[in-house]
């Protein structure tokens, strides 16, 4: 039953993800790709948990790599996205309606 519950979550999340993006201006394709790249950096929490349970050498190495790469994913993804979006700010502040007609 509990694993079935997970499937409901997965199904709804997939639908939400699809809907959230469906009407997005080309200007934002790259920042958005970068932003969603950052969001899957959440893998860091899973990586921390598995490293916390690792026993064999293989598991320790894999866990260490997992945490390291996941942290790089999250931090790097955030900075790259932020730097990209930084450039939109100056223009956008004076032109709030832009979002409607794009």
């Amino acid at each position: 039953m509990e694993s079935l519950f997970a499937f409901y979550v997965v199904m709804l999340a997939a639908f939400a993800g699809y809907e959230v993006i469906s009407r997005v201006p080309t200007v934002l394709h790259t920042p958005l790709m970068s932003g969603s790249n950052f969001i899957h950096g959440i893998v860091v929490v899973g990586a921390m948990v598995v490293l916390g349970q690792a026993e064999s050498t293989l598991q320790l190495v894999a866990g260490f790599l997992a945490v390291m790469m996941a942290a790089a994913n999250a931090v790097g993804g955030y900075i790259v996205t932020e730097r990209m979006l930084e450039m939109f700010r100056a223009n956008v502040d004076e032109d709030e309606e832009y979002s409607q007609d794009s």
Partner: peptide, 16 residues
Amino acid sequence: AMMVAGVVVGASGWML
């Protein structure tokens, strides 16, 4: 957290 965030990125990434 991983479940929701991962699947949302999977779906929106496919859309993108």
